[in-house]
Write a protein that binds this DNA or RNA. Structure first.
Lengths: 156, 156
DNA sequence: CAAAACTTTCAGAGATCTTTGAAGATTTAG
DNA sequence: CTAAATCTTCAAAGATCTCTGAAAGTTTTG
């Protein structure tokens, strides 16, 4: 295992995240935080390590903080800002994506109102609304189940 | 309820789909098929109705067919190709998105190999792998549960 | 309090992605 | 078999999004 190997793995992960819709610089910053050797990382370390501008790092940190994936670390030795992945970040990311499910549900619902319940389109839209309604109800429960299982495993 | 209302609702739905990563023309074609008054629709009807080129419609149909959301209808009156939403399309779409979950799982797994199980990064990556492993196992079961519920409702 | 280090913002360059439109291939009707 | 209609492909124009780099604003240190 060499440093290059972890860098490669980090870059592959960034690529995967980017394919999921995250912008590239943001994905690389997130991967950088994931693969960091230390508990937390500063913005200049990220910029240097990834070879991107401080502006890009700033934007990425802002975005990742907003959606709750990373957090400022309360200054270990009162130095500059340090950042790290938040505990439960992945569950957070999935919950965020659940907003998409909700949007689909609402779009279907509005569609039914517009097209009429008894039209051909109305029946199609009802299947859609049913499906996303179900998912919107069940996905949070699934995430919760993971949290519970994880807590259980840790308590052992 | 007017025609304009259903057109508006269709456009809003297309926007929602596009925000989920689908390209705009493809999203509009899908919305057009969802909101269509008839059982199935031809490519020229879609192009005319949406005001986009036949090339865009062709590309959209190809993409939507590939992922299994729509299907060619076996020529009602032996005319030109007709298309319609497939039964269970939404479950299919969700399953497709499950590929993303799998990719995240695999990225985490490779990351652990590269960083080492006992490193700081390794522990972070293990939480990630756990989470996506769980989701990758459970999401198909959830979709299956919906199929079962739906089938049950229909049998009544 | 001044200087140094860091962070944020933003306009413009650059990269990427989409759509069009026309040419060529395919299919159906006569 | 020929003509008409439809469908697919693809290069290039256009639109959109992203990153950089520099300037301005903060915070910390000496």
């Amino acid at each position: 295992m060499t440093l290059a190997d972890t860098t490669d793995a980090a870059e592959r992960m960034a690529l995967t995240l980017a394919q999921g819709g995250m912008q590239k610089a943001t994905a690389r910053v997130l991967a950088g935080l994931l693969f960091a050797d230390s508990e937390s990382v500063t913005a200049p370390e990220l910029a240097d390590g990834l070879g991107i501008s401080s502006g890009s790092v700033s934007g990425a940190i802002k975005m990742l903080s907003t959606v709750g994936l990373i957090e400022r670390v309360p200054a270990p030795g009162s130095r500059r800002e340090h950042y790290r992945l938040r505990d439960g970040a992945w569950a957070t990311l999935m919950s965020t994506q659940n907003g998409m499910v909700q949007a689909m549900f609402e779009a279907a619902d509005q569609g039914i109102d517009a097209a009429g319940r008894d039209s051909v389109a109305g029946r199609r839209l009802e299947e859609m609304r049913d499906f996303y309604g179900f998912m919107f109800r069940e996905l949070p429960a699934l995430v919760e189940r993971w949290r519970a299982e994880r807590a259980g495993r840790r308590a052992e």
